[in-house]
């Protein structure tokens, strides 16, 4: 198999970034704190790419993303806590199971509710998020290991930067290949105009459900990694306000742009932590205020998001370059 040019550069870029991080680790420039923040950023990247597929590319308004993130976290965390003991094989198996469970639940809930449109779909998914939260709070009645509202600890903390980075690379490639495949094109056409897509012979229900399941599975995967990086899971960490975080990352990044989602996810995580450092101890309670202001100002300055509909070259498969020319995908119009 011949590696296409862009894919080659993608890997070259990845290796360069990895080497940079490693060098900073060795020189002590990258302290464990910023390392943790970077890891968190990568986890959020994976989860946000999931929502990017669902909302950014397919146009299905979901306000319940954190619920799937939580489902993956609890599934993977509990499995590894009970069966694995820091074993790498179990780690990966638990991640896959977490993603699969999130995807399966997405399939079951998505089949009926994806018939709903825009805001109604949003509120239905938000409601589902609240149902999941209640389930997590009472989960210990069925499985005591889940801990319910007292939270769950004891998952082996085996996820570290190298693993998270490789997983992120794989996910980005996976999402890229999905987006630029016929499936992805079908999804984008649904976002642009569902009826027209239907008329063109696209099975809209099938593609909507497919995008929803894939996106939620990615959220589940991100959750699974979170469970192996942060030592404590609590239902409050996955409530509906967290879904807003994913949503604003995807929108600020620009609908229909993986690049935008990735950049904004990293930027968002770092912003929250940098504000902490910059504001110092005397202005701690201004952090929320400034964060909110930045949010409002940036959406007003760039209503279409950072990279609406545009991608970095590296993220476009070679054979599509001719096809897409200057504008690679259509600007996301939302709904």
């Amino acid at each position: 198999m011949k590696l296409s040019r862009n894919t080659f550069f993608y890997f070259a870029g990845a290796v360069f970034f990895f080497a940079l991080v490693k060098a900073m680790q060795f020189s002590g420039m990258l302290t464990p704190y910023w390392q943790l923040v970077l890891d968190q950023a990568l986890i959020i990247v994976i989860g946000a790419l999931g929502l990017s597929i669902i909302y950014g590319f397919t146009g299905q308004f979901s306000l319940g993303h954190a619920a799937f993130y939580g489902l993956g976290a609890y599934t993977a965390g509990a499995l590894d806590k009970v069966y694995g003991n820091g074993n790498m094989l179990f780690f990966f198996l638990s991640l896959l199971t977490g993603a699969a469970v999130a995807g399966l639940v997405a399939l079951l809930i998505g089949l009926p509710i994806l018939r709903l449109r825009s805001d109604y779909l949003g509120i239905a998914t938000l409601g589902f998020g609240i149902i999941v939260r209640v389930g997590m709070e009472n989960g210990n009645k069925l499985f005591p290991v889940l801990g319910g509202a007292t939270g769950m600890s004891g998952t082996p903390q085996v996820a570290h930067f190298d693993l998270i980075f490789i997983l992120t690379l794989i996910v980005i490639l996976l999402v890229r290949n999905f987006i630029f495949s016929t499936y992805g094109r079908a999804c984008t056409s649904i976002r642009e105009d569902e009826i027209a897509a239907d008329v063109m012979g696209i099975d809209t229900t099938r593609y909507k459900v497919m995008a929803f399941v894939l996106g939620c599975a990615l959220a589940g995967l991100a959750g699974g990694i979170y469970a192996h990086r942060y030592p404590f899971l609590h239902p409050a960490s996955f409530d509906f306000l967290k879904s807003f975080d994913f949503l604003l990352i995807v929108v600020l990044g620009g609908l229909g742009s993986m690049t935008g989602t990735i950049v904004t996810a990293v930027g968002w995580v770092f912003l929250l932590e940098v504000l902490r450092v910059v504001l110092g101890q005397n202005f701690i309670d201004w952090r929320g205020v400034i964060y909110a202001l930045i949010l409002v100002v940036s959406i007003i300055v760039r209503p279409q998001g950072l990279f609406s509909g545009k991608e970095l070259r590296l993220l476009i498969p070679d054979h599509l370059k001719m096809l897409t020319g200057k504008e690679h995908t259509h600007a996301g119009s939302g709904n």
């Binding site: 923040v37 968190q40 899971l233």
Partner: peptide
């Protein structure tokens, strides 16, 4: 004293604890 805010959020709490201890 070094004070830090965790917003009563488990993720942020781990982040600030890491900051206080390692940094």
């Amino acid at each position: 004293p070094v004070k830090a805010d965790d917003r009563n959020d488990a993720t942020e709490a781990v982040n600030v604890a890491t900051k206080l201890i390692t940094q």
